[in-house]
Amino acid sequence: MPSSNRAAVIDRSVFKRVGQAVAEGALQHDRDATLDWRSWQLMADLGMWKIPVSVEHGGLGGTWIECVECLDVVARECRDLGFLITVLGHIGSLRLLCGYGTAQQIQRWVPRLLKGEIAVTAMTESSGGSDLSRMQMSAVRQEGGYRLNGRKKHITNAPVATMGMLAGRIPDLGLKKDITLFFMDLKVPGVSVGAKESNLGIRTSPTADLELSNVVVDEGNIIGAPGAGLGILYEIISFERALYGVIAAGLIDGMTDTALARSLERQAFGRQIAAYQYIQGRLTEMKMSSLICRNLTYVALEHLAEGDPETSILCSTAKYQGAEYLTKAAESLMQIHGHGGYSDPAVSKYLRDAAGMKIAGGTNDIQRVNIFNQMLKGGVRP
């Protein structure tokens, strides 16, 4: 990108401060099931959200890869999956607006996102979960726009968001081409937020249901065109799934440092436990899994940018392997600490959070379904 289109050189290292701040308060926010607003605002003040946004719209004119690289820095330090999941949902909304929004839509919502207001990407419903074809939220035409009704389930950021994308149907368009994306303010009549969920893990990323009752929207709330939502959704979903790999990698890096330090200080049978091959096996597996997850993310994003037909497989693989390796690393961390890890919230939190990564963003079983379906679309090779 020509330097004239950039507001500034992006210094990735400053986001280490964000990760360290998150780490300091992670256990307290986990106990309280609250978002770390101070660290969130610090990240906004340091310009995280400005990175991929054009200079014309108040950003730094960087790339999405550069934004992910800064997320990578935060993930290596923060030791809190919940905070990173909230970041992920916010990035999805920003990418949606910048990639598919009109100039008016970008001008209306992006400046608020850059300042730190939080957005949702609400797709999941009780009727279908990851099966978007069973979505029930509907938009009925009326004079001057539409009337939205429906309920979204388990929505990341819902208790703390002021705006976001809600996917629904416009029945008048016909069943096969009616899924439409509505970006809207949430502090309007007819929108209500359910009780904040008390989850096993990822507790620092508040989740709740969103219910819409006769909410009036107009054409200016539609991203893309009426009925064109599914194709846009698949691109946004693929992008978000790819990022799970780099999130997992950063967290595993933190766990590896902790596990290595423990193995060097802990003595068993007259030797450091690091001298035993079974401990070395766990430590080297953690290191290799971090490298695999991180590289999967960047390869997937490269293919996504190029429009490669196998992008969906790569993004689902990054999500799947990120969750699997994160869980294995958390188990190894606890085993290396023994009973001390089982009774230490700082260690056990990793395992609780890792269980949530296998569900968030489409379960690991759903990732396998997606990969298999994409294999069929590509044809069976001899």
Rank of each mutant, 00 (worst) to 15 (best):
M1W: 07
P2I: 10
S3D: 02
V18D: 02
G25S: 12
A26N: 11
L35S: 01
R38P: 09
M43T: 09
M43A: 07
W49E: 12
V53N: 00
S54D: 06
V55R: 05
H57R: 04
G58M: 03
I65E: 07
C67W: 09
V68M: 02
V68A: 10
V68P: 01
V73P: 00
E77M: 09
E77K: 13
D80E: 06
G82P: 06
F83L: 06
I85Q: 09
V87N: 12
V87H: 05
I91H: 04
R95S: 14
L96H: 08
L97A: 05
G99A: 02
Y100H: 14
G101L: 07
Q105D: 10
Q105R: 14
I106M: 06
I106S: 08
P111Y: 11
R112F: 15
L114T: 08
V120F: 05
A122L: 10
T124I: 13
G129W: 00
G129D: 00
S130D: 11
M137D: 11
R141W: 13
Q142F: 14
Q142T: 15
Q142K: 15
G144D: 08
L148F: 02
R151S: 09
R151N: 14
R151L: 07
K153H: 05
K153M: 01
H154F: 12
T156C: 06
N157E: 00
N157T: 07
N157V: 03
P159K: 11
L166M: 14
A167Q: 01
G168R: 07
G168H: 03
P171I: 11
D172S: 15
G174V: 08
K177S: 12
K187V: 13
K187I: 01
V188K: 09
V188E: 12
P189A: 11
G190C: 05
S192G: 00
K196R: 08
K196A: 05
S198Q: 06
I202N: 12
R203Y: 10
S205A: 13
S205T: 02
P206Y: 09
P206A: 10
A208I: 06
S213I: 07
I222H: 02
A225F: 08
A225E: 08
L230F: 15
I232H: 05
I237R: 00
Y244M: 14
Y244H: 15
G245A: 00
I247F: 03
G250R: 03
L251E: 10
A259F: 04
Q272P: 13
Q272R: 14
Q272C: 12
Y276Q: 11
R282C: 04
L283Y: 14
E285Y: 11
E285N: 14
M288H: 14
S290E: 14
L291A: 15
I292T: 03
R294K: 03
R294D: 13
V299H: 04
L301A: 10
H303G: 01
H303Y: 12
E306I: 05
P309T: 09
A318R: 00
A318L: 01
K319F: 14
Y325V: 12
Y325G: 07
T327V: 02
P345N: 01
A346Q: 15
L351F: 06
L351S: 01
G361F: 06
N364D: 13
D365H: 10
I366W: 00
R368C: 10
Q374A: 10
G378A: 05
G379S: 13
R381P: 07
P382M: 14
